[in-house]
Computed example of a mutant assay.
Amino acid sequence: MYYKLDGHRAVRCSNAEWFEWFAIADHRVAETWIDDIQVSTVFLGIDHNAFPHADPALFETMVFSDDELHPVRRYFIWEEAEAGHAEMVAMIHTEMKSAAARAALAWERVYERLKA
């Protein structure tokens, strides 16, 4: 099955329509850079769901790190894709803050030992 976007809504289309649309369309939902990590969410236009009776997986969030791409999550509708992108970005930021807090606590303990 092929789909193209009508605004933010995915609509079925023929193979030929999809190729024509996909060649010129902006199919990016969101892109966020966090240091050297890229979080990218795009409209795929082709159903990537392996289960025939499930909703089509038409959007995908991927994380690119160290020149590697990591397929992360797929979604049925634009709003799910936006929410999934925001959640992935938030999870990365939370982990960064958590790691910094652990590192800061470790440094405090080391600093206290150095002062003694």
Rank of each mutant, 00 (worst) to 15 (best):
M1D: 11
M1W: 03
Y2P: 00
Y3F: 09
Y3S: 00
L5T: 01
D6R: 09
R9H: 08
V11L: 06
R12P: 07
S14K: 01
W18G: 03
W21I: 02
W21S: 06
F22I: 08
A23G: 07
A23W: 04
A23N: 08
D26G: 05
D26F: 03
D26Y: 02
E31R: 09
W33M: 12
W33L: 09
I34H: 06
D35H: 08
D35V: 08
D36Y: 06
D36E: 13
D36M: 07
I37G: 05
S40R: 13
T41R: 00
F43M: 00
L44R: 07
I46Y: 06
D47C: 02
N49Q: 10
N49F: 01
A54R: 06
P56K: 02
A57H: 13
A57L: 10
F59L: 04
E60N: 06
T61P: 04
M62L: 10
V63F: 04
S65Y: 13
D67V: 05
D67S: 11
D67H: 09
H70E: 10
H70N: 12
P71A: 04
I77T: 10
A81G: 02
A83Y: 04
G84Y: 02
A86L: 06
A86Q: 11
E87M: 08
E87Q: 12
A90W: 05
I92V: 10
T94H: 15
K97S: 12
S98H: 15
A99I: 11
A100W: 10
A100E: 15
A101W: 06
R102M: 11
L105S: 13
E108D: 13
R109S: 07
V110P: 01
Y111D: 15
Y111C: 09
L114D: 08
L114M: 11
L114T: 09
A116E: 14
A116K: 11
